[in-house]
Structure formats: structure tokens, C-alpha cells
Amino acid sequence: MKNDISKKETWAWLWILPVIAILSLFYVVPIVKVGLYSFTNASFFGGKFHYTLNTYGFLFSSGTFWIMLKTTLLFVIASVIFQFLLGFSISLALVDGENRKLLGTTFVRTAVLSAWVIPGVVIGIVWKLLLTGASYGILNYYIKVLTGYAIPFLSSPTWALVSIIIANVWRGTAFSMIILYGGLKQVPQELYEAAQIDGASAWKRLIHVTIPQLKQVIFINLALITIYTFNTFDMIMALTGGGPGRATEVLSIYSYDSVFERWALSQGAASAIVLLVINLIIVIFYYRTMKVGENNA
């Protein structure tokens, strides 16, 4: 074995090389390039440009940027809270049902997970068919029957934001559910039995046994769904296209539009860097949580 170390592991580096080469070409160089563009006044069509800090100055002093950022944060925070709560509740109900040998738990799990394998664009289209104000918008028909009013799900700015949150919760709950479900299955059964003997109620067992045991899984889950939600693009494009007006324009759509619709390469690059910084902060948080878990194990 000692021999292996002294061989300097040349073979390993050779085997890794193709992956490193591709990742350098497709990640390292592009990220550096986006970073450089963000400090220029470059346009999408090329031509001469010079280096400047004005792009960020313009971005941070523009009202639309902050409105967009607020929309993004509302979208992310609401999505994450509901995805987590819903995913957690469903996983608890599933594990409880399995312990009681109830029928249909596998079917419930499959139904939730199937939402997660559908392409984002299709999710957007399917929800549009459901929420539309047209006569086949069945949800509005039921709401009208119950309350007398129709809800402008896709035509009012506020409701459009609510709509993309609902559709995103529908899409992302499966991931939280399955990760937390996996965590719940690992909690030693004896802990619950001990708590039960002590006379702890179901609620107390949840607060004092389940949640502390799942702490790391919960943090990892929160970090991942936060990142996925920040990066959402396809579903919103199909459901609202960022509208009405710019009511559902989140960071990724703003960057895309800046570059490919408004041809403002430098501005799009600067907003992409904002997205990158947010992504990296969450990655660091995620990695630290994972490390803590490994050290404790």
C-alpha cells in the first residue's frame, strides 16, 4: 500500500484529466469571462469596449434591479418555506402510515415524485391550463362557485407571483419529501419508544426527538431547495414569461433578458455575477453543514 502513495498517483490524475479539462473549459473560463464582462460596457454584438465599474453602479442604482431582487427573494423565501413544510409533513405522514401498515403509502410517494420528473417547461404549461382566466380554467370555476369571485391568477401582478410560487412548490416538494423521508427512516426507533414511555405527546416527540435528530438533513435540504429555487428559469418562462409586465421577473430571467433580449451583455453579466455570489454563499453553507455531519459521525 505504501508503494501506491509513493507512485504519486499519476494514473489517478490521468483519469481525472478529461473531466478537469471539460470543467475548466465550460465552467472556469466562462465564469472568469462573465466576471470580466461585468466590469466592461460590452454589448452583445461585440465591438470595442472598455473596462468600467459603471455597470455595477448602473445596476445597483436602477429601480428595476431592486424590484426584481425583491420579487426573487419573495419567490425564493415563500417557495422554500412551503416546499419544506409540505415535504416534511408528507414524509411524516408517510413514515407514520408505513409504521401502521396503512395501504397506499407507495402510491402517495409515487404521485408526489412524479411531479418532480416532469420537465419544468411542461409544469409551467400544465399550471397555465389550470390557472387561466379562460373558460377552461377549472380552478377559477370552482373558486367562483364557492366565493362568487374569480381570481386573476396570471393577469394580476401580485397573483402572478403567487401562481409561480404555487407551481414551484408543486414541483419542488417531492425533493424535500424524499430527502426528509430518508432522514426519518434513519432515526433510531428506540428514541421514540423511550419518549413514549416518558409520556411525551406526539408533538413533543416531534420537537424533542425528530427535529434534533434530523437537524443536519434539514439544513442540507434547505440549502439545496434554496439554490434550486434561485436558479428556476424554465417553469416561469412557460407559466408567465416573467410577466405580467415584469411582475414575475426573477434574477435568472432578468440576466437572460439583459443579454439576449436587451443586448446589454455587461449588465446581464453583472446580474449573473450577483446570482453566482448567491449560489456560492449557499454552497459554502451547504458544504459546512455536510462537513459538520461527517465529523460528528
Binding site: Y27, P30, F230, N231, S252, S255, A272, L276, N279
Partner: peptide
Amino acid sequence: ISPLIIAI
């Protein structure tokens, strides 16, 4: 990281 960042 979002694929959008590298796609530009």
C-alpha cells in the same frame, strides 16, 4: 451554480 451563468 445556475447553468445560465456559464451559458452566456
